[in-house]
Amino acid sequence: MTDSPGSRTARAADKRRRLAAAAAEVLHEQGVERTTLADIAQAAGVPVGNVYYYFKTKDDLVRAALSEQSSHLDGLTRRLDELPDPLERLKGLVAAWVAQRDTAARRGCPTGTLAVELDKRPDGTLDAEAAAVIRRLLDWVGLQFRALDLPDPDGLALTLVAGYQGMSLLANALREPEVMTREGARLTDWLDSLTA
């Protein structure tokens, strides 16, 4: 009995998704330079030879990882957009960051660490794509500050996202998840002070 074209297509799409998710995870854990296609194949449970069918180069896998990170961000902001109050959305964002404190202490921010590593590569082809994911976050945060009718919403967005990147970096450098907890509380207090 042979597979239908639809089931083959579904299996191929599933394999591609597994590889992209594994790429995001392994690249965050090991970094671009230390990660091999075999590492990603193993994490995805896919024979290494199959990786080339879906992704021709490591850069293609990095793009897939960035796409995964972007999808994760979209899912998070969609859930936060269900909250009726923009201030609560922003506080929910901070809470989501703090909830990832153990991961941040081990590896830093997934997109931030990848953006820094890609910026140091001599070819400089993917750093703009990593920056685009961070820009999406900045834009969403800026929209929340606009909805609160606060002055300089883009500057406030930059301050909030910079606070996250800083606490993520320090939690990672010090291997202290509680940095995220403490600084997350400070960011929440700061948000409250803006509308008091």
Rank of each mutant, 00 (worst) to 15 (best):
R182Q: 14
V98F: 04
V94W: 02
C109H: 14
D189F: 01
D154M: 09
R146L: 03
A23E: 04
S71H: 10
V51D: 10
W97K: 08
D3P: 07
T181Y: 01
R63S: 15
E29I: 10
Q165S: 13
N172W: 10
A38V: 10
R136G: 10
G45I: 06
L143V: 00
Q100S: 14
A99D: 13
A162C: 13
A12D: 13
H72A: 15
A105T: 02
D85S: 14
L90W: 03
T9Q: 12
V98P: 04
R107V: 07
S71N: 14
R11E: 14
A96V: 05
T195G: 12
S168A: 15
R136L: 09
L93Y: 14
T113D: 08
L187V: 11
D149E: 15
V46K: 11
A128I: 07
E178D: 12
V133K: 04
R11Q: 15
A171G: 09
Q100P: 02
A23P: 01
L160Q: 02
T125V: 15
A65M: 07
D123R: 15
A44M: 08
A96D: 12
W190D: 05
E25M: 04
A24P: 03
T181Q: 09
P84Y: 06
R11Y: 12
W97I: 12
A157F: 06
T36E: 07
S168M: 09
D60L: 04
A65H: 03
S70M: 12
A130K: 05
R79W: 01
E176H: 07
Y164P: 02
A64I: 06
L80A: 08
L126V: 10
C109K: 07
A105S: 09
L158H: 10
A96W: 11
E129S: 13
L37V: 13
A12K: 09
G31E: 01
A162M: 13
G163Y: 15
E82S: 11
Q165C: 07
L169I: 10
S7M: 14
K91Y: 04
V116C: 00
G6V: 14
L160T: 03
G108Y: 00
R16W: 11
L148T: 08
Q165M: 13
A24Y: 03
L27R: 06
A99C: 04
T77Q: 11
F145C: 06
L118E: 14
D39T: 03
I134Q: 09
K15N: 08
W97V: 14
L156Q: 14
T111D: 07
K91C: 04
V94S: 04
E25A: 10
D102F: 08
R136E: 12
R18W: 01
A21T: 05
R106L: 07
A157L: 05
L27D: 04
D39A: 07
E88L: 09
P122M: 02
R136P: 00
Y52Q: 09
A38Y: 10
A115L: 09
S193T: 14
P151E: 12
G166F: 06
M167D: 09
V98T: 12
L148V: 08
L93C: 00
F55T: 04
A23K: 02
T9I: 02
R11T: 13
L138R: 06
L27E: 05
L114M: 15
R17C: 01
L143C: 02
A147T: 01
N50Q: 11
